[in-house]
Computed example of a mutant assay.
Amino acid sequence: MNSWNFVGIIAWIIVIALLIFVVFNIRNRHLNILVVKKGKITWKTILTDLLEIVVIILMVSGLLYTSLFTRVDLTDKEAVSVSYKYDPMIVQTTDDGQGYYVKIDKKQSNSSTDVYQYWLNNTTYTVSSRDSTISDATLPFTVSGIHLDWPMKKIKKLDSKYQYAYVITVQAKYKNNFINGLGLKANRYAMEYRVLRVPARSFIEVEK
């Protein structure tokens, strides 16, 4: 485990310890009033109880939000580092001799998600359309839903080098800092996304 993530572990230990302390503190305070002093629970006591409970709820909510519910901002260079990898795809042929680079497997797809297959170094890769997209080189290069500073100069060079048939793999990794450590995310992958670049739609095979 990355050492920065111990920030989050220590924070959770403190919160759990405070939760135990609050439970016993409320219990002991009530027993002291009712049994020892033979008194009654007043609004002051109730407000003190509520204040302690609210503080604990806020602390737990803050840690849960930081750990589970924050959405990664891929443009935030303080939070994540983004890397790009480029691999040329291998052409495949249908029974009638038609070449293609990407196959859409409709048998494994459903109404909302497609399943793509492509080949690198004679190895088959299968990805979901949730984590990838097909980019037709006859159209302007766009990737919807992923806000990144795409290296267009590099992409244009690789378009020429690989004849518009390659895979762009984008990986975002959480940096080592206090906030990521508090959320137990430091040095972990935030996302991986693939852009399947093809020369034209005719190089996509749809298997029904």
Rank of each mutant, 00 (worst) to 15 (best):
N177C: 00
V198P: 01
M191F: 09
K40R: 12
S132M: 03
V7T: 14
I9N: 09
A17N: 12
A172D: 00
M152A: 06
P88Y: 01
W43L: 12
Y100Q: 03
T93G: 10
D76V: 07
V22W: 04
M89C: 04
L184S: 02
I155V: 03
H30S: 14
V195P: 03
K103M: 10
I56G: 00
F69D: 04
K153D: 15
T133V: 13
D114F: 13
S109T: 05
Y164E: 14
W119R: 14
K77F: 08
K38W: 11
G62N: 04
Y166T: 00
L148Q: 07
Y118M: 06
T123Y: 07
N180S: 12
V170F: 00
F178E: 08
K161M: 15
S81K: 06
N25V: 02
L68T: 02
Y65W: 10
W12N: 05
I33E: 07
R188G: 01
K103H: 04
A17L: 10
K103A: 11
T42R: 11
T133Y: 02
I16Y: 08
T138N: 03
Q171L: 12
S202V: 06
K106R: 14
M1Q: 13
A165I: 00
I57S: 07
V127F: 05
A11D: 08
S202N: 15
G145N: 13
L47T: 09
W4Y: 11
V35S: 10
Y65L: 08
S135L: 13
S3W: 12
H30C: 13
Q117C: 10
A165D: 01
W4L: 09
D131A: 13
K208R: 11
R71S: 15
V206Y: 09
N177G: 05
T126N: 09
V54D: 09
M89S: 04
R188F: 10
S160R: 11
